[in-house]
Computed example of a mutant assay.
Amino acid sequence: MSFTLKSSAFADGSAIPSKYTRLGENIAPRLEWAGAPDATRSFALIVEDPDAPNGIFSHWGVFNIPGDRNALPESSDTAPNGGLRFCDNDFGNGRYDGPQPPKGHGLHHYHFKLAALDVPALSMPASAGIQAMWREAQKHMIAEASLTGTFEQR
């Protein structure tokens, strides 16, 4: 079985509903995964927009997701979360911030990337930022699953 990531909020390659954007309720969509390697001890997740005007823009970073989990519920960044750690995103917030591309900038792609890690936890401050967390996660990555959503502000 391959390692997969999906959401009940949107299908891979399709539009992210406004509810999950900064123009709507700005809440994290539910995410589910399956097929993680047996050696998985924890997970790390990032959400990035490579279509941002100034290069890759990081919207969400979560780490120390227990290896026995297979989902993050909707609003998992604000609900009781079982010890999850959240990195500061490029908006400067330690939580999920959904799509908000510049008006008229065209279609943006939001890449949700989930890494299965061979360590139970990453030891780093959340203030280090999403890119630093992801670089550390990649040192321990044994598998990666991804999901892409799109959004355009007209």
Score class of each variant (00 low, 15 high):
K6V: 11
V119S: 13
I142V: 14
T21V: 09
V62F: 07
P80Y: 14
Y110A: 03
A71F: 15
T150R: 07
Q153N: 15
P125M: 02
P73S: 09
D88W: 09
D88A: 10
H140E: 09
A28K: 02
F112R: 02
A121V: 02
L107R: 10
P99E: 02
A137L: 01
A11Q: 13
A137C: 07
P50H: 04
P50E: 09
S58W: 05
S123Q: 12
D118S: 09
G67V: 06
P120R: 05
A34L: 05
I56P: 05
M124T: 02
F86V: 01
S7E: 08
A145L: 13
L114T: 03
D51C: 04
L84P: 11
A52E: 04
P66Q: 09
G61H: 05
A143R: 13
V62G: 06
A79D: 14
D118A: 01
P17M: 06
T4K: 15
H105I: 00
L147A: 07
A34G: 05
A137Y: 15
D68V: 01
S14P: 04
A126Y: 01
K19G: 00
F63R: 05
E32G: 06
I27D: 07
N26K: 10
N54S: 05
M141K: 13
A121E: 13
F86A: 12
I46W: 15
Y110H: 10
F43W: 09
D38C: 00
A39N: 11
P50Y: 09
S7V: 03
M1Q: 08
L72V: 03
P102E: 14
G83Y: 11
H59A: 01
F91M: 05
F57C: 02
E25P: 00
G94E: 12
Y96L: 13
A15M: 09
N93C: 06
T150P: 06
S7I: 07
E144C: 12
R69L: 12
A137V: 02
T21G: 12
A115R: 14
L45N: 04
I27A: 11
P120T: 10
S123D: 12
G13W: 01
S123F: 01
G35D: 08
F43P: 04
Y110M: 04
L72C: 10
K113R: 15
G94F: 11
R95K: 10
E152D: 05
L114E: 14
P102V: 04
W134I: 01
N26R: 02
K113A: 11
Q138S: 11
S8E: 07
P50V: 00
Q153Y: 08
P66A: 15
N64H: 10
M124Y: 05
M141Q: 14
W60N: 10
N93M: 01
G13R: 06
F3M: 07
H105Y: 09
I27S: 13
L31S: 06
L107H: 01
G149M: 04
A34H: 08
P120Q: 05
P66D: 13
P80V: 11
L147W: 05
A71E: 15
M1D: 04
S127Q: 14
D68L: 04
S18N: 12
A39I: 00
A71Y: 15
N93H: 14
E32S: 13
N81C: 06
K139C: 00
K139A: 13
Y110K: 03
L23W: 02
I46M: 12
P50F: 06
N81H: 10
E136C: 00
T4M: 14
F10A: 02
A115E: 09
